[in-house]
């Protein structure tokens, strides 16, 4: 699949943003006043920038409101609702933290639940696609949740919890890479089944249907850069999980240190998300004799 910057920014930043908001909503970081303004602002900023980025890959963004109508069937629609609900429900919690004045923890709990729902809905947009076997299994929601939780834990300075989450994230990332590699084979789609000619014999492309590129090939058959995948995988796991984990364990949880750790983690998350798209193979490639 084509790793469009808009979707990479969207899923990475909004994931980290909603992770951070969930941790704040649960009251894990007791901050008030200016500090609360800054950290809640960061959470809202990441989530909103991510959501805005997602509109950049739309052909007609002016109609984006229509995406709220099909929540009963569409994960993309549910994602929109969950995101808006989380941002609205958490506003009083954020304001209470900034301006003082307690709110019962129930408010934060509900808001955190919607943050969780948003991340799950985002991941399900990809997980639901049978056509992309690498996405279509449990590792996708697990990874999205682990990224959100790790980002949130780092940014709220929960050093020990964040270190444990980093370890979990590393294991999940490696598992997703390894299991993901086998998914296409497991699904069993082949040029033979795509054309139905497998029963006649071995199928090979003789002539492509068009001489230039088309939307399908640009969007679904992204082969550029796959040759660096192995290196990028190591970079992604190191930056997103291993290095932050070690720094969390061996460095003082000073805000500046945490900011550096968070930045490293996010770089790893971007690399991982780039791979998530670039390595994903769509079954339509079979018609073109490509993956």
């Amino acid at each position: 699949m084509h790793p469009a910057p808009s979707v990479i920014v969207f899923t990475t930043l909004s994931g980290a943003g909603f992770g951070l908001l969930a941790f704040l909503a649960l009251g894990l970081l007791p901050v008030y006043g200016v500090q609360a303004f800054l950290i809640w602002g960061l959470g809202y900023g990441l989530a909103v920038i991510g959501l805005l980025a997602s509109t950049f890959h739309l052909g007609n963004p002016q109609r984006a409101w229509r995406a709220f109508t099909q929540w009963r069937t569409s994960w993309l629609s549910r994602e929109g609702w969950a995101a808006v609900a989380a941002l609205l429900l958490l506003a009083p919690v954020a304001l209470a933290a900034i301006f003082g004045g307690g709110l019962p923890p129930f408010f934060g709990l509900v808001g955190a639940a919607f943050c969780l729902a948003t991340v799950i809905a985002t991941s399900m947009i990809y997980t639901q696609l049978k056509t992309v076997p690498r996405w279509n299994f449990w590792a996708t929601p697990a990874l999205f949740l682990a990224f959100a939780a790790t980002g949130g834990a780092i940014m709220t300075g929960q050093a020990l919890m964040a270190a444990v989450l980093c370890a979990l994230l590393a294991v999940l990332m490696i598992a997703a890479f390894k299991l993901g590699d086998q998914r296409f084979g497991e699904v069993g789609a082949s040029m033979g089944s795509a054309t139905g000619l497998g029963s006649v014999g071995k199928v090979r492309v003789l002539a492509q249907p068009h001489t230039g590129p088309n939307y399908l090939m640009k969007e679904m058959i992204h082969v550029v850069g796959r040759k660096h995948a192995a290196t990028l995988r190591r970079i992604a796991v190191t930056l997103a999980a291993i290095l932050p984990g070690l720094m969390l364990l061996f460095m003082p949880p000073h805000p500046f240190v945490l900011a550096v750790i968070a930045a490293i983690h996010l770089m790893g998350a971007f690399a991982a998300r780039w791979l998530f798209f670039a390595e994903a193979e769509h079954v339509v490639g079979l018609y073109y004799g490509q993956r």
Partner: peptide, 17 residues
């Protein structure tokens, strides 16, 4: 249609452009 392209991703047969 907002042109999100998700339906084209969901189609196994490349029938949507």
């Amino acid at each position: 249609c907002i042109g999100c392209g998700l339906c084209a991703w969901a189609c196994p047969y490349g029938a949507r452009e």
